[in-house]
């Protein structure tokens, strides 16, 4: 599995090198890579970071619409190195995924999950600052390129310290609340540190890597890799996905006044 993933990564890099020759990566006037744009993954990582076959979804009444899409996995080495007790927690999460997945509850997704949710996000890069705005739940985070330090308080999107390593934006994220990493119950705690690397391969592709350290959950740091694709449509833009109205009936429906119909509000 490791060799296969490594081969895929090398192949991806080779393909990106080839593309680079045709389409140079844009740069800011400062000379730094210009990451501005609307980006999105094209993969099944949000269903399960590990390689997985198609399977019945958590809501059978949705039929094939709710089925789990198969994916070859994005984890270096294939498997997430859980400690035994943590793996048991992951299995429990999986069993309760219909109602306990923070995505179902419209909670902010944290890092790295925000990157590979099936929704676009926009990088807003100025001469000195970087902001990431995610369509899902209106999550947003600023990257501290200066005035760096420790996370002042834990939060859902964490505290991001960024720096340039050559042409790669490296973002070290700490101060994250405990959160799930996908719809299969993979998770990490508030003790985790996520080190992200954004490498602009050409004008329309970023190679994304994230290394996750969480000693109470994993036996060693582990890494995911995937390309990010620029949304090139002329009318591409982040749309409204304030998902609270879509989660309310699941979260609070049991407290609805008996005999009242489900209200329809929001879009």
């Amino acid at each position: 599995m490791f060799k296969r993933n490594l081969f895929c990564t090398l192949a991806l890099l080779a393909a990106m090198d080839a593309a680079l020759a045709q389409s140079a990566a844009p740069r800011m006037k400062s000379g730094k890579p210009d990451l501005n744009g609307i980006w999105q993954v094209v993969n099944e990582a949000n269903w399960n970071l590990e390689a997985h076959n198609a399977s019945q979804g958590a809501v059978e009444t949705l039929g094939a619409i709710g089925a789990v899409a198969p994916g070859p996995g994005v984890v270096d080495g294939g498997k997430i190195p859980y400690l035994p007790a943590a793996l048991a927690q992951r299995q429990q999460n999986f069993a309760e995924r219909r109602t306990e997945d923070p995505e179902a509850k419209c909670f902010m997704p944290g890092v790295p999950r925000a990157t590979y949710l099936p929704y676009p996000f926009q990088i807003v890069q100025s001469d000195s600052d970087l902001m990431f705005v995610y369509q899902f739940a209106g999550a947003v985070r600023s990257i501290a390129m200066k005035n760096q330090g420790e996370a002042p308080v834990d939060s859902w999107m964490g505290w991001s310290n960024g720096h340039w390593d050559g042409n790669t934006l490296v973002v070290e994220v700490t101060g994250l609340n405990a959160n799930w990493l996908d719809r299969s119950g993979n998770y990490a705690t508030e003790a985790r540190k996520v080190t992200e690397r954004y490498t602009l391969a050409d004008k329309d592709h970023i190679l994304y890597e994230a290394t996750i350290e969480d000693p109470g959950v994993f036996s060693r740091p582990w890494t995911i890799r995937m390309p990010l694709y620029r949304r090139v449509e002329a009318n591409a833009r982040l749309m409204d996905f304030r998902c609270v109205p879509f989660a309310e009936e699941m979260m609070y429906g049991e407290l609805r006044k008996p005999g009242t119909a489900g209200a329809k509000q929001g879009e």
Binding site: N36, V124, M131, V133, G138, A139, V140
Partner: peptide
């Protein structure tokens, strides 16, 4: 928080973390 990039201005209000992304352009998109 106001953030600018070529072609965009973003307004984020602290409460409740909503970021309005405003395209800067010569005519209405």
């Amino acid at each position: 928080q106001i953030t600018q990039s070529p072609g965009y201005v973003v307004f984020e209000t602290e409460m409740i973390h909503d970021a309005r992304i405003i395209p800067i352009t010569d005519q209405r998109p």
